[in-house]
Design a protein around this nucleic acid. Structure first.
Lengths: 248, 248
DNA sequence: TGTCATCAGCTTATAGGACAAGTTGGGTAC
DNA sequence: GTACCCAACTTGTCCTATAAGCTGATGACA
């Protein structure tokens, strides 16, 4: 395993347990661990050349992601893949990019179910302070169209703000977890998202429906925005695939 | 802190780190920790009389729930409460029962947004195998109306099965996390849920709409079922409150 | 022969001590 | 006044030892 000091100014090396957990997860995903039998603390310690403490924390991480079950006296067992915590950015980072692409589609489906309704609810119930903050964010986005990273940050905050109007911690949490879409989708497409100008126009449209207290309009605007977002993503994936083909 | 051996046949004593994490979370919730400064590993070790290993795992647990931020060299800081992982059964268990009641309402709102659409989608896309399994579950529920625990188990599986028809891991995960509703709502109401017979009728109604490949019907049936569920829950809370009042 | 209790061996849980490495802030040199 | 540096604090990792829980096999007894 790679220690911190051995990689001077790399992207940011995580702790050993995280590195080992990543290795093990990838091995599980690629079918390298048969019939659910996961390695024990000692196995991990020996194989990766880390202390038992690190091996232990590795298992705790995997357990917290519902990847394995660990209990005193019993062997560690791999849990059904359907129950893993796919909302965790850590897990998503360890998955192969095709899987991440699928998850992106699935996340889009979830957002398409939730956000139009959230927008409609916000149109009915948002406070003036919320609307003010949304205004500020829309303005900032129009200034940031040439800086995708900063743009997507504000973009995320805009959607979070609308979600918060529902005053629902569980919804907040889900939308908050969706933050990895921003970072991960860029990892997949490996380029700045296109069409930020159009996105700003759509955000403005949503904002104006909220100000007009028009639930149906907000719902429609949000729906349009999300489906546009998604087709942009698909198009970028398409391009990426084509480039990859050309290189072959 | 209570060791395992000191409580012979209690409900099931968790590990020390979980116990300590529960204490700390409750303290944070009740405002016992000012300006976001959380105790360090050594603080925890000293105060609770546990080893540094346990104190360390405690912090890791809190970090995995997004309750605190921990990094080498820096002090542990408490994160904004809005970003905590309220989908985690562990956290929910540590929260005061009023908060849990609120979360139950919020969870209902989420399900009301998702499940009618999921039912509609399932009506369009569910396989015959899925429908078969749903049939079995409806039948079992009608047999289990006098055993609430077992009933709620199958109930949960029924809703999961419909969700799975969407073939969406993130949605699966969210619905899976909703499992704690079953256990937690009973913790709040402290009694067996009423109206299981009516619930079975509604499940049947949903199932029949799916078999008939009738999306609109499935959506309506699911909506009715959920709102009935929720009003039953409210009624039980009402009763509980009344009984508590009488005892005073 | 079948059933059940017991125990050995494996596994995780907890403890204590030591050192490495990152962060912060204050103090010193210029 | 500024910039650098270092000391103190904090988490990260390692080592070793013991407690406690589970599993499966062994063996006693009916």
């Amino acid at each position: 395993m790679q220690r911190g000091q051995e990689s001077p100014d790399a992207v940011k090396v995580r702790t050993l347990p995280v590195q080992v957990a990543a290795h093990l997860t990838r091995r599980i995903v690629s079918g390298g661990i048969e019939d659910g039998r996961a390695p024990s603390e000692l196995d991990i310690s020996r194989e990766f050349g880390v202390s038992r403490v690190v091996a232990r924390e590795t298992l705790k991480i995997l357990a917290s992601l519902d990847i394995v079950d660990v209990a005193q006296g019993r062997r560690v067992v791999v849990r059904p893949r359907a129950e893993w915590d796919y909302l965790s950015p850590l897990l998503v980072e360890w998955l192969p990019s095709e899987t991440v692409g699928e998850l992106l589609r699935e996340l889009h489906q979830l957002r398409a179910l939730l956000e139009p309704e959230l927008a409609a609810m916000a149109a009915a119930s948002a406070t003036d302070e919320t609307l003010d903050r949304l205004k500020v964010q829309v303005d900032r986005m129009s200034e940031l169209e040439s800086e995708p990273d900063a743009y997507l940050e504000v973009d995320h905050e805009f959607h979070m703000e609308i979600c918060r109007a529902a005053d629902n911690r569980i919804l907040d949490r889900i939308m908050y977890s969706a933050r990895w879409l921003g970072t991960t989708s860029r990892r997949v497409t490996n380029e700045a998202p296109a069409g930020l100008h159009r996105a700003t126009a759509q955000h403005t449209e949503i904002y104006e429906a909220l100000v007009a207290r028009d639930p149906a309009g907000a719902r429609t605007a949000m729906r349009r925005h999300l489906s546009n977002n998604y087709s942009t993503l698909l198009a970028e994936n398409e391009q990426k695939t084509k480039r990859a083909d050309r290189r072959r």
